[in-house]
Design a protein around this nucleic acid. Sequence first.
DNA 1: CCGATCGCGGTAAGCGCTTACCAAAACGGT
DNA 2: ACCGTTTTGGTAAGCGCTTACCGCGATCGG
Lengths: 361, 361
Amino acid sequence: MADTQSNIQAPPTIYDVARAAGVSIASVSRVLNGHRNPRQETRDRVLRAVAELGFVPDGAARALSARLKEVVGVVFRRVPWGETSESAFAEEDESLQFTDVINRGIEVAAQRRGYNLLIGSVDVDEHDAHRRIMTMARKSDGLILHDRVLEPSRLAQLSQHVPVVTLAGVATQTTANVRGDNGGGMGELARHLIRDHGYLTIAYLAGHADSPDNLARRLALAEQAAGAGVLFTEGPQWQGNYLASGGAKVISRLLVDGVRLPRAIVCANDQTAVGVMHALSQHGIDVPGEVAVAGFDDIPVARHLRPQLTSIRQPIQELGATAFEVLRSMIANRAPQDHDIVLPTRLIRRESCGCPPDGGR
Amino acid sequence: MADTQSNIQAPPTIYDVARAAGVSIASVSRVLNGHRNPRQETRDRVLRAVAELGFVPDGAARALSARLKEVVGVVFRRVPWGETSESAFAEEDESLQFTDVINRGIEVAAQRRGYNLLIGSVDVDEHDAHRRIMTMARKSDGLILHDRVLEPSRLAQLSQHVPVVTLAGVATQTTANVRGDNGGGMGELARHLIRDHGYLTIAYLAGHADSPDNLARRLALAEQAAGAGVLFTEGPQWQGNYLASGGAKVISRLLVDGVRLPRAIVCANDQTAVGVMHALSQHGIDVPGEVAVAGFDDIPVARHLRPQLTSIRQPIQELGATAFEVLRSMIANRAPQDHDIVLPTRLIRRESCGCPPDGGR
DNA sequence: CCGATCGCGGTAAGCGCTTACCAAAACGGT
DNA sequence: ACCGTTTTGGTAAGCGCTTACCGCGATCGG
C-alpha cells in the first residue's frame, strides 16, 4: 500500500512530439494551432506523433507565451459554515442554488469556447478579499463577479488590469453587467397579486440593502402598490439577507411581536421565501389561505415546496452564459456593445400566491 | 458608450517591482516566497514596492517555472440541457445538488491552502471527454473526478501523468478514492425500516448500474432484507438513473403496468426520491401511509419536501474537503497513506419513512 | 531560362517567474 | 589583522510554449 502516485512520469512536451515527427517545435505548434502554414504531409506526421504520445500542451507555458489562459475566474460570496446553523437551515443555505445554477450556465458557455472556470469564493466579511481575487485574476483571462463580492473602489481598480463582468450589479465605465429584468418581473407579480387576487396589503421582505437587485425589486413593487392604492409594508423589521434563515427569522420575530401580517409577502428571492414558508407553517399559518407568499428567481426547488412557490423566473443559466459571452468579447475586443445587459423575466404562477395547483403557465 | 476596457494596462511585473525597490528580481522573488535569505531591510523595500505597485505575480509564469499551479481540477458529469425536460423536472435536475455541495467543500478546503478550483463538466456520453479532461489536467496540479466521468482505462492512463482522486468510485493502484460509508448507512436504514417499522416488502430503486455507490447500497439493503426474511424487490423495472425524472418514470411505469408497490421504496439517492414522491403524489398514493420512501445523501432540499425525506446523511462537504486534502498530499508527497477513504454516514429519520414529524435523529 | 515571388518550415527570442550558482559582504575567532 | 564561514543578493539558465524573422527550394511570368 501507500505507493500511489509514486511514479508519475512527466507528460510529453512539444519537443518530444517534434522529435518523434522529425520536425521542429515551431511546426508542431503551428499544426496544433491550425495555422495554414504546414502542408498536409507535415501536418499528418505531427498529428500522428501527437496521438501516439498523447501530447496535450501545458496550460501554463501556453498562457505565458500566448497571453491567453483560456480560463475565466468566477467569484461568489460564500456563507460561512456555521452562520445559519441555529435553525433548521443549517445546511440548506450551503447550497446557494442561484449561484450554483448561474455558474453552471457560465461553465457550459465556457466549455463551448474551450475555456475552463476558475472558481473562488470570498467570505462575507473577508477584509482582504481583493488580494485573493487579484490572485485569481492573474490565473485567468477575465473575471465574472457575483453580487457584492468587491467594493466599488476595488472593482474599479481591478478592472484596470482585467476584463470584468458583474452579475446583478451595476455597469460602470470599465465593467459590464448582466442582470435579470427586475422591474418588469416584479411589476408583473405585483399586478397579479393586486388585480388578479385582490390583495390589499403587501409587504416586501428585503434582501441585502446594498444589492442593486434588491433595490430594483423593492422599487417596482412599491410603485405598483402605490399606483393601486394598496398598503405597502417594509422597513427594518422586514429586513432579510437573501437566506432562508433570514426570512424565517423575520417572520418569527414579527409573530412574536404580535404584528399583524399583511395579506401577501413578496420576498427578495426564493431562498428567503423558503424560510418564510417554513416559519409560517411552524406557526400554523396557512399559505396561501391566510398569507400569500412569492419569491424571485424561480430556483429549482421552488416547485417542490408545499405549496409550490410562485416566483419570477429569471433565465438563470442564460444569465451565466451571457456573462461569459460578454466577458469573452471583452477579452478579445476589449469593448462590449453594451455595458448593461438585461435578460427578460416572467411570472410563474404556482400555489403560494393563491392560484390553484397547476395554475397558470 | 462601448469603450469599456479599451484601455487596459498591463499589470506590473516582477521587473517593475525590482526596479522600484532597487534590487534584483531574484530578491523580489525570494521575499515573496518567504525565503529566509533577504534581510529585513531589503525585505521592507521590496514589500513597500509591491504594495505601491499592487503587484501580484502572474499565475502562468509562476506555474511554468515552479511547476506548481496551485489549481486543482474538478470534473463532474453534466446532465444535458434538454434531457429531462419532458417532465416536471425540466430544470430541477440542473441543480445536481450533491455535486454542487461537494464542490463547495472542495473549494473551501482549497481556499485554505491557497488553491483555486478549475471546474469542468463532461456530457454523459461525450466520446472524447478524456481530451477535455486532459486539457484540464494540464492546467492544474491534480484532478478530482466525480463519479463516472471517465472509463477505467482512461483513468489509469490519466493517472500516470497527474495525481488523481476519485469521488464515489473505486481506489486503484494509482488513484485514491473518497466515499461515504454506503454499507453502514444503508444497513442502518434497512434495519430501521424492518425492525422499527416492521415493513415486510422493500424495493430498491437503483442508480446507474456502473456506479460503485449504487452497487454497495443495493448490496447492503439486499443483505439486511435477506437476513430478516423480508421480500426484496429490484430489477430492470426498478432501474433509475440518479435523477428525479428517472425515479418518477419508474414509478409511473410500474403503476401503469398495474404492479403492486412494496410497502417501502429505498432510493439510490435523494434526487431519485424526489421524483418518486412526486410521482406517488400525482397518483394519489400517500407517503408514508401507503408507501414509505427513503433516499440517500441527505441533500439540502430533503427537509423541505412534504413529507420530509428520510435519508442517509453523508458528510457531503467533508467528502469534498477530504478529497482535496488527499489530492494535495499526493501533489506534495506523491503517496497518500490510504487509497480508499471512507467517511461515516448516518440515518436521518424524517417523515417519509413513517416516523412522526420531527421524529428523532 | 532567369530573377521575382511564394509556400514551407527552421532558428531563436521572448513570455514572467524560480532557483542553482557564485561573488561580495559581513562576521567570528585567534 | 587575517582567514574561514556564513549571509546576502546578483546573474543567468531554464520552465514549455508561440511567433517574428529568415533562408531555402519550388513556382511562375516574360
